[in-house]
Design a protein around this nucleic acid. Structure first.
Lengths: 241, 241
DNA sequence: CCAAAAGTGTTATTAATACACCCATGC
DNA sequence: GCATGGGTGTATTAATAACACTTTTGG
């Protein structure tokens, strides 16, 4: 920890960047802003910014940026630290390390650029990962990390519900899994599996017919955060070295 | 990202701290150093230090610190970023944010303070988490995060083998799980489970009788990194809010 | 009536668990 | 021989997957 030479400490600029994911129009999408200045002018980048002062908490900075970009406050969404990126060359101007946060938000009618003047827009992550979009800095690989984190978190937590509005149907929750994982799930087995997990979902007693057909029960997010056992997606074994 | 006012960027000091875990004498232990200076003089802290220059990569700084403390290089162990801690009050002298890394190492005859003069020692994590040891800064909660990360990684990756030497027996691997999770596992079912995972372990053809009894086959780490399906520990459901 | 989606029951398959039993060594 | 740990077989139980079938709405 703090060594014996406090008079020779290199100080660096620290930014907080946000990977804000939502499920929208049948696709996993990420909130990106078009850069107005060099470097990477005109390219898409994660929303974020330098910490406001040397005394601003990192977590608070993330919440502040998120409120600026989306108008959402911390109790309406899921926010967690993703990881910190700090290779020396990642910003051509100067050494900048960035602490990235992952936010999962429902598909709300977004106040486009709430307060802030920057043009934030939703971009399907498939476009980003397929090289169909020009992405500034190392943000493409950060987005890849964010998507992978979200995908694996659906397996062993109840975070899929973070993509849903306050009240949602079992089918809407299932669509989240299907879209984020890119798979098809049996509606009947899914229903049974989810309802068998105690306190994953709380029935509100309300019903809706917005998906067509027989009215579906509406649920709210429950109090369980971790799933034991997890809901596993099928995937090929990942190897190393 | 980088906002429109590069002339007013607050810069902060950045440290890299290491949570180095090993399984030793039947317990999960962490490498800690005794602080020689204020603040928290005489208390135990995670090894680490300021990044050496504004151009040093964070990952490289972690590897450098690890080599200084243990003499181990990156190919002999597992090293991953844990998370970044940056509350303004965490260092009473000045604003310091720390990027923490988690290292899993085998129980090797450690060159105690390899090169570096600091007195590093192994401390059972149970002592740390039970408040039986005085821990500097916010390092106790960082250690708790590191231990939880290691515990959950054993479930869905092959990282348990990172705690073992180059060649190890099935029983030695099982002891890792038992010690890290604090459970007992059936040796027979464990043996079958592990051997049924393709490329988790590679038989070396060698045998040993170091655990007593019938000679056991020796294995090396295989090439699979992620376990599908995971090996689940039994745990109580975790709730939120 | 028909289409569409919700939800339940039943069965086949697969994985997890418990434990009986034999094997190969040191002493 | 006997103790100790290594390793296989097998029966029981539980979780998963596939899918037939009934329910309840809108048109």
């Amino acid at each position: 920890m703090p060594s014996e030479k406090p008079w020779r400490i290199p100080k660096v600029a620290v930014t907080v960047d946000l990977a804000v994911l939502t499920v929208r129009d049948g696709a996993l999408q990420i909130l990106l802003v078009k850069r107005g200045i060099e470097p990477y002018q005109g390219m898409l980048a994660l929303p974020g910014g330098f910490i406001a002062s040397t005394e601003e908490d990192i977590e608070a900075a993330a919440e502040r940026e998120l409120a600026e970009e989306t108008g959402l406050t911390a109790d309406q969404l899921h926010l967690e630290q993703l990881r910190t990126y700090g290779t020396p060359e990642r910003d051509p101007r100067q050494r900048v390390i960035t602490v990235c946060y992952l936010a999962l938000v429902p598909d709300l009618p977004m106040p486009t650029a709430g307060g802030d003047a920057r043009a934030a827009s939703w971009v399907p992550v498939a476009h980003v990962l397929n090289d169909d979009a020009e992405i500034a800095f190392d943000h493409r690989s950060i987005i890849a990390d964010a998507v992978e984190r979200a995908r694996s978190k659906l397996e062993y937590t109840t975070l899929a519900a973070a993509f849903c509005r306050t009240e949602f149907t079992m089918t809407e929750l299932r669509r989240v899994y299907e879209i984020v994982w890119g798979v098809e799930l049996d509606p009947r087995n899914f229903h049974r599996k989810i309802t068998s997990v105690d306190r994953f979902l709380i029935p509100t007693g309300h019903r809706t017919t917005r998906d067509g057909g027989r009215p579906a029960a509406l649920y709210r997010r429950g109090t369980v955060a971790v799933l034991h056992p997890p809901i596993l997606r099928n995937s090929d074994p990942v190897t190393v070295s």
